[in-house]
Simulated scan of single mutants.
Amino acid sequence: MKVVIAGAGSVGRSIATELLANDHEVTLVDKQPSAMRVASVADAEWLLADACELSTLTQAKVDECDVIVAATGDDKVNLVVSLLAKTEYGVPRTVARVNNPKNEWMFDEAWGVDVAVSTPRIMTAMVEEAVAVGDLVKIFTFHQSGAEILELTLPEDAPLVGVRVGQVVWPPDTVLAAIVRGPRPIAPSPDDTLEAGDELLIVAGSQADLPALHELLVKPPAAT
């Protein structure tokens, strides 16, 4: 897979390193000479230029790439890069970094963004996930489809503790994607039994009934 990353800061370089480790081809683009730390990601192609310029994207061969990642620290730049990549070059997939959560509403298909990644939102979700046993926590939203990745840690008194996955009747538009038990991720099969403390990763479509999902997973409080 060919990937162009706009923004060669710490975020862009980290993404590039991971992609290269998985045998993908990566080009890093940045207009700041101070960002040209070529030795830190030596296997990537590097381009010192403004990613908001069509000539730069052409030079980076964006028309041949499978994914473009707009990973700069400027939301305006990330939106422009995504829009140009989608409208001028027809890039199949655009991933954009959201720096300011107040701008997140703009990162959608109207601006050519397929996937928006908000670091503050993800960090908030991780904090909530660490303390909220029995609560559904939104980890990620796919802006194009509206589907969400949700996490829930099963409390000891959850009605599904001891129940096999194949016996669970999930609400429509909802799929159990993974079970994390201790350090071990499990691809759920019908014969797997749910246990207290299991972290469930659930994909819920835009029409999913989240209150019904919560009622299924967590025992409602006793009436007073």
Rank of each mutant, 00 (worst) to 15 (best):
T119S: 11
P120N: 15
P120A: 14
P120G: 14
P120I: 11
I122W: 01
M126H: 07
V127T: 11
E129F: 03
A130D: 09
A130H: 06
V131H: 06
A132S: 12
A132D: 11
V133K: 11
V133Q: 13
G134D: 03
D135A: 14
D135E: 11
D135L: 12
D135Q: 14
D135V: 09
L136C: 11
V137C: 05
V137H: 06
K138T: 13
K138V: 09
F140M: 12
T141A: 04
T141F: 01
T141R: 14
F142H: 09
H143V: 07
Q144K: 15
S145L: 05
G146Q: 10
G146H: 12
A147G: 05
A147P: 02
E148S: 15
I149C: 06
I149A: 15
E151R: 15
L152H: 02
L152T: 13
T153S: 06
P155M: 00
P155F: 01
P155N: 06
P155E: 04
D157W: 02
A158R: 06
A158Q: 09
L160T: 10
L160M: 00
L160H: 04
V161F: 01
V161G: 03
G162S: 10
G162V: 07
V163C: 08
V163T: 15
V163Q: 14
V165L: 03
V165F: 03
V165A: 11
G166D: 09
V169Y: 08
V169D: 07
W170D: 05
W170V: 02
P171M: 07
P171A: 06
P172M: 08
P172G: 13
D173G: 03
T174D: 02
T174R: 05
T174M: 02
T174K: 03
A177T: 02
A177H: 05
A178P: 01
R181E: 01
R181V: 03
G182F: 00
G182E: 00
P183H: 13
R184W: 02
R184E: 13
R184Q: 14
P185K: 11
P185C: 05
A187S: 13
P188W: 07
P188Q: 15
S189E: 12
P190Y: 02
D191H: 14
D191C: 04
D191F: 06
D192P: 01
D192K: 04
T193E: 15
T193Q: 13
L194F: 03
E195D: 12
A196F: 00
G197M: 08
D198G: 08
E199F: 09
L200V: 05
L200H: 10
L200P: 10
L201I: 12
I202D: 02
V203K: 04
V203M: 10
A204S: 09
S206Q: 09
Q207G: 07
Q207R: 13
A208S: 12
A208R: 06
D209F: 10
D209P: 09
D209L: 10
L210D: 01
A212G: 10
E215K: 14
E215V: 00
L217N: 00
L217M: 03
V218Y: 00
P220A: 08
P220Y: 04
